[in-house]
């Protein structure tokens, strides 16, 4: 499974990737982007199976990245990994097509719990 990890913090991308590995996803490979604009380019080039994306980023926020993907007809599995935890933000994420929402800081168990149900589909 190829996962695109999008976060403007390189250290956080490393942590997300490490946690993805710890969560036991089979045949995992990862690609990275630093914001939503770079994410769009990476999606076009690498066609990931899933996207783990931060919310607040320069150039293009995560929610705008998701909305652009969906507007372009791209249905890649998409979820947020973010410090945002308000009900309003979660609702906007769901309404825009996000399949999972993981709040930072997170544990490998939290990642697995969020991803396993959506990957099973």
């Amino acid at each position: 499974m190829k996962v695109l990890v999008v976060d403007d913090s390189k250290a956080m991308r490393m942590i997300v990737i490490r946690t993805l590995k710890q969560s036991g996803i089979a045949n995992l490979t990862t690609v990275e982007a630093g914001n939503g604009l770079e994410g769009l380019a990476m999606v076009a080039e690498h066609k990931p199976h899933a996207i783990c994306c931060d919310w607040n980023m320069p150039e293009m926020k995560g929610i705008d990245f998701l909305k652009k993907l969906r507007a372009d007809g791209n249905e890649t599995l998409f979820g947020f990994v973010t410090s945002e935890c308000s009900a309003e933000v979660k609702k906007e994420a769901e309404d825009s097509g996000a399949a999972f929402f993981i709040v930072k800081p997170f544990t490998p168990n939290a990642f697995e719990a969020a991803l396993t149900p959506v990957l099973a589909h």
Binding site: S9, A11, N56, S83, E84, C85, V103, K104, P105
Partner: peptide
């Protein structure tokens, strides 16, 4: 500095987890 910014960004959850008002770093 970048890492510290991210740590402090995530620390917003010290004030917002299970709390009514939204705050951002």
């Amino acid at each position: 500095a970048g890492n510290l910014g991210e740590v402090l960004n995530i620390c917003v959850n010290l004030f917002t987890e299970n709390a009514p008002d939204r705050l951002t770093f």
